[in-house]
Amino acid sequence: MDLLLTHFWELTITGLAIGAVYSLVALGYTLVYGVLRLINFAHSEVFMWGSFAAVWVLMAAGAGKASGLGLAGYLILGLVAAMAVSAIVALLLEFVAYRPLRKRNSPPLIALISAIGASFTLSELMGLRDKPLKWFNASGLQDYLGRPRENLPFPLQVETKRLFYVFNYHVSNIDVIVLVSAIVMMVILDQFIKRSRLGRGIRAVAQDPEAAALMGVNRDRVIRLTFLIGGLMAGAAAMMYLLKIGVTRYNAGFILGVKAFTAAVLGGIGNLRGALLGGFILGVAENYGSALFGSNWKDVVAFVLLVVILLFRPTGLLGESLGKARA
């Protein structure tokens, strides 16, 4: 209890920062669920591939200790690489694992199995990334690969600077970078979905696919668009995750994906703002939980919270009936 009280603001702010990562990944689950009624289990791997992209690009760019403008350059480079690769993986995933099933009108359960299969495949491909090197004799790339089943460290080292106080917590530059960039992206996305024509198309398909088709909305295009947006956000999340955690690995997506999915359900799956809220709540609650019960209990706290909230609000915090989902 003491730990929670003395470190309350630190726990809150670092919880919000990791919560922002959950939120950004949760967006991908909730958007795809909104238009396809499908839990895209491979979304966690979209995130993981983005994190590797960021690491590799920054290794190639020779990133190390950095500050000021150089740091900003590396951050943008890593972010762009992660977002691009995640978006490409997400689109490929849709093309290979889901679209063929949709064209054959397969039942939803089949798509779910396909999702799980795609998740394993993407994860294991990364876990076996050293194999192709042996075929091609390209051992010069060994440094980039690291040991495939182990952690790959993030090369960019951001010198921690304490910027300002929130009550008794001295907020670090990393927290600020993560939170500010995440919130900027969330606002842009929220406005895009709310105001733009394409965003309205996404909401139309989520609310009534048949009526949307009658309005001239191309459902396939909308589905691709949601995978694209989900991928971009997962890539951004990957970069922020690296800044906070400092390493990635072939199965880094798993736990994070489960957490992000939890966040989406917590907020009300299909609801965009719900996913954001759910991510932040989960991040903060985990931190409080580990202060109260010890860090080993962190995940237990997160999932007990989920169960309790769903007991009282089965549709999640902001979830209305599915038909009214905003997505």
């Binding site: 609310q207 038909g323 009214k324």
Partner: peptide, 14 residues
């Protein structure tokens, strides 16, 4: 088949 989560104006724009 109204888009129940959208306003009247948004529905008309659809």
């Amino acid at each position: 088949g109204c888009f129940v989560g959208m306003t009247v104006i948004e529905n008309l724009d659809m």
